[in-house]
Design a protein around this nucleic acid. Structure first.
Length: 433
DNA sequence: CCTCATGATTTACT
DNA sequence: AGTAAATCATGAGG
């Protein structure tokens, strides 16, 4: 105790020497120390410190009286300031390092996720972004609208709970902070509490509350994840495409059997025609290709069926095209329909348009394509109704489209497409019938 | 209930 | 990023 008081005394002396508290020191000393200024002050401060140090040893009444006396002491402001400074310095040296904590990566992750899911962030979102994304992934057809609204409703519920809880915590945090601040301000009249210390205390409170907030965010994220996984599970519940859609897809597939890889535009077009999404079209073609390749025999009948169908459609198209060729200048045939892809039902020559690796055909190529279409028709029409369903090569659709590796022929140089004597996609057979 | 068909997902590859 | 291949999970028909 004595050592401590001596130390404090020294510190007080040192600090007081060069500070604004000097103003206070200029006042006449309380106990009539009229001697040398420096010595008198030191003695004075020493007395006060001694009183402070021994205050706990005294009885309550006595201490109360002393406290009051100290409070009223004219040296009090100066001493208070010094003590604050000492406290500040020792305090800072102790926790200086942990004062500025970096942004918690986990909290950032949670924040990002909540933002992405539309739980936090602007009200308008309301998870619609996430729902829309999920909708796009799930197909976005009308069938899923019920599930989407359900998902959205649940997400909104989570969002509401999250926000009310967050608000509650924030309010509690603010109330508690102001309470503590008032308390500290009040105490600062009797204890050396600097504004910085109050600030630090507020920081501590905020950190405590933010940890609660993090828990809230965590559980909200969990809830969203559960909801999402359930929604994704629901997505798995598949529904067969409509007969019409399957027909359209099959028609395209079998008329492009040499290269059944629709371009992005073709996929979009098919998706529109079938009222499904592009990814569903991709899925369908992926499944179809692999299943066709695995068991060509099984698909033979189907292939022939669609070949006949396509041929009949193509007949109309060719007839129209030929007529068109006769009326138009041979140098610019059919230039009007360039780039568009139409399904056979529309009566257009979509097969030709769509050939050549999905590139839009050039006007000069149309002549050749028309020619090939005519050839195709000659073969196919002759064979209509006469196809066999054997597994061998004597069928309308032969597995010649697949190369030795089991893959489809190189799309960039499909001989069946470029050859003017063979229709696109080898729709016709090798005249085995 | 069983089986097959089929849309969707996952994984690995390029 | 697009695809093949394997697999999952459900729908439909018997």
């Amino acid at each position: 105790m004595d050592d401590q008081s001596r130390m404090l005394q020294t510190l007080a002396g040192v600090n007081l020497a060069g500070h604004s508290v000097q103003g206070g020191m200029a006042l006449p000393p309380p106990h009539g120390h009229d001697g040398a200024d420096g010595d008198g002050r030191k003695q004075d401060i020493g007395d006060i410190l001694h009183q402070i140090m021994t205050i706990t040893d005294q009885s309550l009444d006595e201490a109360q009286a002393k406290k009051h006396a100290l409070n009223c002491h004219r040296m009090k402001p100066a001493l208070f300031s010094v003590l604050c400074e000492i406290k500040e310095k020792t305090g800072l040296s102790i926790r200086g390092a942990q004062e500025e904590d970096p942004p918690d990566p986990q909290l950032m992750r949670l924040d990002n996720m909540l933002l992405a899911e539309g739980v936090s962030g602007p009200e308008k979102g309301g998870g619609s972004a996430a729902a829309a994304a999920a909708a796009a992934a799930s197909g976005g057809s009308a069938d899923n609208s019920i599930e989407h609204s359900d998902y959205r409703a649940k997400l909104t519920q989570i969002r509401q709970i999250y926000h009310t809880e967050l608000e509650k915590y924030e309010q509690a945090c603010n109330e508690f902070t102001t309470h503590v601040m008032n308390l500290l301000r009040e105490q600062s009249r009797t204890r050396p509490i600097s504004p910085k210390e109050i600030e630090r205390m507020v920081g501590i409170i905020h950190r405590k509350f933010s940890s609660i907030q993090m828990q809230l965010k965590q559980s909200t994220c969990e809830a969203v994840m559960i909801l999402r996984s359930r929604f994704l599970d629901a997505r798995r519940k598949r529904r067969n495409f409509s007969k019409q859609a399957t027909e359209i897809l099959n028609e395209y597939f079998y008329s492009h059997l040499s290269n059944p890889y629709p371009s992005e535009e073709a996929k979009e077009e098919l998706a529109k025609k079938c009222s499904i999404t592009v990814s569903q079209v991709s899925n369908w073609f992926g499944n179809k290709r692999i299943r066709y390749k695995k068991n060509i025999g099984k698909f033979q009948e189907e292939a022939n069926l669609y070949a006949a169908k396509t041929a009949v459609t193509a007949a109309h198209a060719v007839a129209a095209a030929v007529q068109n060729n006769q009326t138009n200048s041979p140098t610019t045939p059919n230039s009007g329909s360039s780039g568009s892809f139409n399904l056979p039902n529309s009566g257009d020559m979509y097969m030709n348009m769509q050939s050549l690796n999905g590139d839009s055909y050039q006007g000069s190529q149309v002549g050749a394509n028309v020619q090939s279409q005519v050839d195709t028709l000659r073969h196919v029409i002759n064979q209509t109704g006469g196809y066999n369903d054997g597994l061998g090569g004597n069928s309308l659709y032969s597995p010649h489209n697949l190369n030795a590796n089991g893959g489809w022929q190189d799309a960039t140089t499909p001989s069946s497409v470029t050859s003017p004597t063979e229709g696109p996609g080898s729709v016709h057979s090798d005249t085995s019938n």
